[in-house]
Structure formats: structure tokens, C-alpha cells
């Protein structure tokens, strides 16, 4: 498998009023083309910072990041991004919100508009495309923001705790939908989460991160078969993966036993 994202000895240091803060230290990892890769860790471990660095929105202080062989200088082409909050614009309808990623690059063609409608349809928002964001529930809003990220058919999808603010049931729904979409399109996904179960359910590999300074402590492969129904979470294999990761975190003193 070709590496889609290569990170070598990446470090990031912020200047702050109380001296330099090390956000990331000596991070090295490869994400393969088409892989579903999660960054898992407690808050403050730098997982969101790492994602921002991969997106090119923030620079790194040391080391290097290459996306599809190109060293980063600013956001690379073919990137889709989903944030923890949906960041839908209140003055735009759901359809217009989805179209904005295309509008940033030019005037959306009729074909792009059709694709936006089809995406909304696929995410169960067909009937809501002319509504405004505030008329929708949190789960529906986050669905719309995923449609927005997918509109320009990104080769790499970066997701920063996209389901962190949702209730457990909606979260399950969206996990299933996301795996289904990913299964069909096989794009590279880098997914930030602090839920062990979510990371295990979704990912091919999980990078476990630790705080102070933010670093990768272990990369765990999840060899559960696909497609994965939600019920896979009740299987002993799934439990074994979760226990393994929890055990590693506990051994490192990151979570309590």
C-alpha cells in the first residue's frame, strides 16, 4: 500500500506567555491510501493539533509531513474536513451550506448541485435541503456538514471528533453511516476521537496518543472483518481490542484500571 500521509519526527511548539509549550513531540506515522486511521487519546494529547498540521492549517516546528509525496505548505489539494461543531452558516439553507465548499473554488455547476442533492438524499436529508440549520437537530446538522466535506470528492477526509457533541444513539447511527460511505468510496480517513469503542469500530488502525508532550505511544491494527455491523461491538474480538487498548493506556497511567 502506498503511503498517503507520511509524518516523520514531527514536533510542534507554541510560544505562550509562560514560555514554550510542546504540543507535539517526535510524531512519526504513515497512513496508507484508502485506510481508515484514528487518532485516539485523552484531551490535551495533541490529536486535534496533529490533525490541523496534517490539514496544512498549522505548520509544524520540526520534522516533516508529506501528503501524497508532497511536502506540506498550506492545505493540500483534495482535502475534506469535518469539525466537532458542524460550522453550518445560519444564513444559508442546508443545500447552500453543502455547496459552499464548491463555491469557495468557483461557481457550482449543475452537476455539482445534483451531486449535493444526491448526497443529502443519501444521508436522509433530502426533505430538509431548503431548511435552515437551526431548524435541524444536532445529528442532522452534523450529517449535513459531512455532506459538505464530501461534496468535492476529497481524497483525504479529516474528521476532528465529529460525533463528540452528539448523543450516544445518534452517534451510533452516524458511525454506521460513515463506515458504509467509507466502504463504498475507500478514501483515506483520519479520524480524531477520545472514544476507544468508536476508534475500534471504525478503524483499520488506531494511533494511541498521550499528553505532556503530545506523542504517539502505540499504533494498534484492528483486524476485525468488514463490513462491520453495529452488533460487532458485542463480539469477544471487539471486546479484546478495546481491552487491549484500555490496558495499554492504563499501563501508561493515562486511564485508571
Amino acid at each position: 500500500m502506498a503511503a498517503c500521509v507520511e509524518i516523520r519526527a514531527a514536533g510542534k511548539t507554541y510560544g505562550s506567555a509562560r514560555g514554550p509549550v510542546i504540543a507535539l513531540s517526535d510524531v512519526s506515522m504513515d497512513v496508507a491510501e484508502g485506510e481508515f486511521f484514528s487518532l485516539l487519546g485523552p484531551s490535551g494529547c495533541g490529536k486535534s493539533t496533529l490533525l490541523k498540521c496534517i490539514s496544512g492549517l498549522e505548520g509544524i516546528s520540526t520534522g516533516g509531513i508529506r501528503v501524497r509525496g508532497q511536502a506540506l505548505s498550506g492545505p493540500p489539494k483534495g482535502l475534506g474536513m469535518v469539525f466537532q461543531r458542524d460550522v453550518l452558516l445560519d444564513w444559508r439553507t442546508i443545500l447552500q451550506n453543502v455547496l459552499i465548499t464548491a463555491e469557495f473554488q468557483g461557481r457550482p455547476t449543475a452537476e455539482v448541485i445534483d451531486r449535493a442533492r444526491a448526497l443529502l438524499e443519501r444521508f436522509g436529508l433530502g426533505a430538509f435541503q431548503d431548511r435552515h440549520p437551526w431548524e435541524l437537530s444536532g445529528g442532522m446538522r452534523q450529517r449535513a456538514s459531512i455532506c459538505r466535506a464530501l461534496l468535492c470528492e476529497p481524497e483525504i477526509l479529516l474528521m476532528d471528533e465529529p460525533f463528540g457533541a452528539l448523543d450516544a444513539m445518534t452517534r451510533d447511527d452516524l458511525n454506521v453511516e460513515l463506515t458504509r460511505i467509507w466502504q463504498a468510496a475507500r478514501r483515506t480517513v483520519i479520524f480524531v476521537t477520545h472514544s476507544i469503542a468508536e476508534a475500534v469500530y471504525l478503524s483499520d488502525r488506531v494511533a494511541m496518543m498521550s499528553a505532556g508532550p503530545g506523542r504517539i505511544v502505540e499504533i494498534v491494527a484492528i483486524d476485525l472483518p468488514r463490513p462491520r455491523p453495529l452488533s460487532i461491538r458485542e463480539t469477544p474480538e471487539f471486546a479484546r481490542h478495546v481491552a487491549h487498548i484500555r490496558g495499554l493506556f492504563a499501563a501508561l497511567g493515562i486511564v485508571k484500571e
Partner: peptide, 20 residues
């Protein structure tokens, strides 16, 4: 995050002004 979204999609400063 709205600005980040625009920058990831290579929006020009003018587009960011007009659209966001």
C-alpha cells in the same frame, strides 16, 4: 472553524469576505 473550512478549500481572502 468557518475560516479553517474556507482555507482547506482554498478560498481566496475575497471569497472569505463575501461568503463568510
Amino acid at each position: 472553524d468557518a475560516i479553517a473550512l474556507a482555507r482547506v478549500n482554498h478560498a481566496s481572502p475575497f471569497k472569505i469576505l463575501v461568503k463568510i
